[in-house]
Design a protein around this nucleic acid. Sequence first.
DNA 1: TCGGTATTCTCGTGAGATGAGAACCGAGGC
DNA 2: GCCTCGGTTCTCATCTCACGAGAATACCGA
Lengths: 250, 250
Amino acid sequence: MAQIAVVQRTFAVLEAVAASGSASAKEVAGRLEIPLPSVYRLLQELVVAGYLVHLREQGSFELGPKCFDLGLSFRQRVIAPQSIRHAADQVHRALGAAAYFAVYRGEDIVLTYLSDCEKHPRLRPLRFGFHEAAHATAFGKILLAGMEQEQREVYLRARGTPRLTPQTLVDSAGIEAHLDEVAARGIAWEHEEFLPGQTCAAVPVRNGTGMAVAAIAMSIRTPDAAHRHRQIETVLREHAGRCSRYLRMG
Amino acid sequence: MAQIAVVQRTFAVLEAVAASGSASAKEVAGRLEIPLPSVYRLLQELVVAGYLVHLREQGSFELGPKCFDLGLSFRQRVIAPQSIRHAADQVHRALGAAAYFAVYRGEDIVLTYLSDCEKHPRLRPLRFGFHEAAHATAFGKILLAGMEQEQREVYLRARGTPRLTPQTLVDSAGIEAHLDEVAARGIAWEHEEFLPGQTCAAVPVRNGTGMAVAAIAMSIRTPDAAHRHRQIETVLREHAGRCSRYLRMG
DNA sequence: TCGGTATTCTCGTGAGATGAGAACCGAGGC
DNA sequence: GCCTCGGTTCTCATCTCACGAGAATACCGA
């Protein structure tokens, strides 16, 4: 699978620097067990390319501008488009709850928009970017439920299903059974499985072919969710429909 | 200067994808004039390394998780530390003006912290990250004034000195003369040279050896600056001193 | 002036990157 | 079912060019 040695080494060097924040050539050489001249060659290459900077006075290398640019490009590519953000903002307002938009992309689940405020804060651990605890969040579960079983197994095996609260579903049999139900209902509820005291719900957003490619979700304190399940489901579905329509139009 | 062909090609491919947001192998091959099999090899390598993802259903490649990670690492490394952010917040509060902290790093000027609020908004074009208009901002000028002349010339030649407002200094003789004055006074004022209606000021933050490695700055609407130059200078200097002390302690 | 460290240079060798071409695969169209 | 046609992967003979030991040089602090 892995092929071009130089390229792999180059990324290894880049990531070594990224991990340390700041590293000397010797440190990198030591950590990666690559002879010093080669490390210098690769470092130089990375500096010329703009992915590292050489802080001569300190004899160390750090991440360069291109790393920032890549991060920005990624963000701009992945962030939910205007109209979807708008839909999430409306869910936020209509329910008085933090709202989320997540997509399935490549092999990953990515949170591409969060709509919250001081009165209705998002779940603290959640932020823009990759999501690792799909088995314990409403939007994670709805997206898992939409995958082929094989794909789902690969996904869950790769990241595990750690217990985050006493309610977290951790055994694969239990998860599979639960996801069947989620798929059947077309909505995922999550009751304190991710964070104690918080209840979440998510519904799928489908593309033209009916595949669940994204999810719109909300989180609210558990007591505030009581007797509002109907309303929450209605609002989520309404805006999921709008998102679907938007996706279909491109 | 440039050496390892494969590595350069690899980054060329990565950046081609980043620039397009999404690109097929053929597009990349066309744009870079690299034979198709080689492009596939490099794309695959980038996918394995996590810098790209292969969206099979669309036959296209997009940026992957590692790009996001790099951006995060960069941010975490570069963002001003807690105590410096605190100093900038205090400047913000004491002056009722947006406050900024910028450092000179490698060959670049980087804005590493902004402290503003709705009542005292930052200059809109400014945001966290690399700064390109050093000749037209207060913190840019104070850092330029602290460089060796040669270094400064390289810097300005590389980025140019575009006219942003009627007040912008654009000719190198004028800039040099102005920077001499700035260096002598130890404070840079900027009167509507970057944005009409806005006045800024910046003072240097020095490391243990007395070199100007950073700047603390503020921006305010020009009318609000009248008769407050003394106060602004005093507040900035006070907190620049604190920042310097912090830098010396590490 | 003198260690010690960081960085760059030199160069012969062979691993391994290269790209033309062909095979493979999957989705539509007929 | 069969055929077509992109997109993608594989094969392989060629020869470039990346490799790393070692030496040289630059740089810094004492």
